[in-house]
Design a protein around this nucleic acid. Sequence first.
RNA 1: GUGGCCUUGGUGUAAUGGCAGCACAAGGGCCUGUGGAGCCCUUAGUGGCGGUUCGAAUCCGCUAGGCCACCCCA
Length: 427
Amino acid sequence: MSPKIKFQTPTGMKDLLPEDLEFYQRVFEVVDDFAQLFGFNKIQTPIVEDVQLFEKGTGGSTDIVEKQMYILKTKGGEYLALRPEFTPAFARAYFEHGMVNWPHPVKLYTFGPLFRYERPQAGRLRQFYQFNFEIFGSKKPISDVEIIYLFWEILKELGLKNLIVHINSIGDKQCRPYYKKSLVRYLRSRERDLCPDCKRRLKTNPLRVLDCKQEKCRTVIAQAPQMLDYLCGECKQHLERVLEYLDALEIPYFLNPYLVRGLDYYTKTVFEIMPDNVPNPTALAGGGRYDDLLKLIGKRDVPATGAAAGIERIIALMKEQNVFKPSKKKIDVFVAQLGDKAKVKTLKILKDLKKAKIYPAFSLSKDSLGDQLKIADKLGAPFVIILGEEEVLKGKALVRNMKTGVQKEVKFEKLGQEIKKLLKKKK
RNA sequence: GUGGCCUUGGUGUAAUGGCAGCACAAGGGCCUGUGGAGCCCUUAGUGGCGGUUCGAAUCCGCUAGGCCACCCCA
């Protein structure tokens, strides 16, 4: 009856161990810090939402909705989806909690896990983390740039180098239909030169033919009409202003006419931040304006702009560029004990140490002092508090300097202050 | 979803059809109230299922997971 099956994490999902979490926490720290600086408020939404929220919001013809959602049926018969992205949930929350009546723009952010059923690869997981920022209620170009600048600064603060912003405008409901029509007309004329996927896209989502990487398609695309030439006056001006702001902020960008994002709801500005000068760059962050999404979810027409960044990808690049070293948890003091009374006393003095903001290590399951000193040494503790039966009776503990071996008696009540003093002296 | 490569104790590796071995890590001991070294002992592995063979970590099939490219995206 030896169970041969080995339990393991589900495909494309992983455990985050202490060492991993140091990286995640570093990212979250910087994100929170910049969120505060830029005046964004944090919210958390449920991990599951009504399937229809994404069908409507994210868009029925997107890969995400078509084939990547984890969908579950509850006992009550509702269909819920593990969230594959944040934006529709933000829009839902915006209406559900009457944020329409908050002073605008409403600036919100969050981070947490998302789920997409995909074939896993490095930098592409089925459960992954993103941080996400949204601005509701501003149609101004500066708001797009506020988002881009914020993401740019967060990535820079994390130490990442050689990044570039790819940016494009995909127009709005005024001008995009004209462009789409003329693009489709052109692509039809060259249909026999397209890959099978693109033949399909031609019907379902022709804009995405633009990002196909098949060589035969690339040659077709090279001569295709470009959105930039079809932008209406308003969209054109919007893009120009965005680019001017980017210039003024000295953010390096590449105006990429083939950048089309996979989600249906974008209008005007779309952007991705990616590593520059590498063979197969994957976007670290991406987003843009989505003026038409909110009225699909709620009743009101609210312009919005936002972006999301993939934390695992950021961490991978941090490791590659070697810009963050998890600081080895250094402990201030190790408490070694001998005998039951001393074990209990060890637990009792914890609160006193906490008061002095000293965080100790200890190992109550060990009985031998030698073993405990060995552990203290391995942990790199500069000082050890030694508590034996004798010390408990005397009301004093021995404090040992691990470097010099010098020990002195300290009253229990003074332990916190004394260690603090010693630590300070050491520096 | 398509194609390709990979998988040996916790980690890193050796064995290419013939006794699964080494290093590190871990646990215990030498050492009953004083660490760093050393020595000794212990735990623990061929991802899973099947096939070929006298004999399989090794060859074959399926499966699971990982990785790479496509697809897509963060």
